[in-house]
Design a protein around this nucleic acid. Structure first.
Lengths: 143, 143
DNA sequence: GACGATTATATCGCGTACGATCAATATGGT
DNA sequence: ACCATATTGATCGTACGCGATATAATCGTC
């Protein structure tokens, strides 16, 4: 009864493994757009709400500046966004999409379709899974 | 109806985010044992089946040698395992637990308990979530 | 208006991930 | 025995993720 769990039986490994599988699924779809998977997530966040401070992006994506700063610099170098000091408060940096970054949203629709298809296409079931994961995420974040 | 999804509505982001949250949950629990989260997963795999080739471990964990080789070398340096050429086939390398690596299994029980508690403790629900994720994982792997 | 505390971002170091490539060993056909 | 081919790990370069620390700007208090 108190037998040690096999790796397939660990929820944490399932999450770890599915995350990698999703990352591998996105990679070839995003490569033609010159994007990595985390960069794509940053774009999704910015498409929803543009012109945000680095920390605000970090709160939403659960990433600190030690990850975001170099990531955003690469995206700035790729001309997907701009990084400008806020004149109101010179400590903060406003991240804003360029036209190039905004326009990628059209192509992202195809990516989403491909991913949905690879996942089986049952929207109801995938939404339910997403809600369960978000609930778990909130439980873990409030530790 | 065809409104672009917000980031909270993407299943892929839920998985990404929960994975990071789990990693952050394990970090302080594993640090006293001198383990990182991926290293812990390697140990779980080895506790189940010891003395395996690098590729076999990689198949189970869905990691290639470019990730595993340095990871296993660090674990060898920490004396958690040994890496020895297989005399039967000099191409392959057998990864085997040391006593130190094997003995960590006892302490791992506490880690599992802590994680379970942080996740809410409802084993039925967590198992169901795990099974759904494993199903998704298998769907993604057979692409 | 000077100064300590706070806030916002940047930097450094280490450890994964992974595509691409390489070196060593084994195997099968001739 | 010989050689093309396949298998197995190792290596290299780039990009996250994050703990720890640094730097710069702002705020609060006096």
């Amino acid at each position: 009864m108190d037998r040690p769990l096999q790796i397939d039986e660990l929820l944490c490994f399932s999450v770890y493994s599915v995350n990698h599988a999703i990352s591998r699924l996105y990679r070839p779809l995003l490569a033609p757009l010159g994007l990595t998977y985390p960069q794509y997530l940053v774009l999704v966040a910015l498409w929803d709400r543009d012109k945000r401070r680095v920390n605000d992006l970090g709160t939403e994506l659960q990433l600190d500046t030690n990850t975001l700063t170099p990531l955003l610099k690469r995206m700035e170098a790729a001309e997907l966004l701009t990084r400008k000091r806020n004149p109101e408060d010179e400590r903060s940096l406003i991240v804003a999409l360029t036209d190039k970054g905004r326009n990628l949203q059209d192509k992202a629709g195809e990516v989403t379709s491909c991913v949905l298809e690879a996942m089986g296409g049952d929207i109801e079931e995938l939404s339910a899974l997403r809600d369960r994961l978000n609930a778990l995420r909130h439980k873990l974040e409030q530790q």
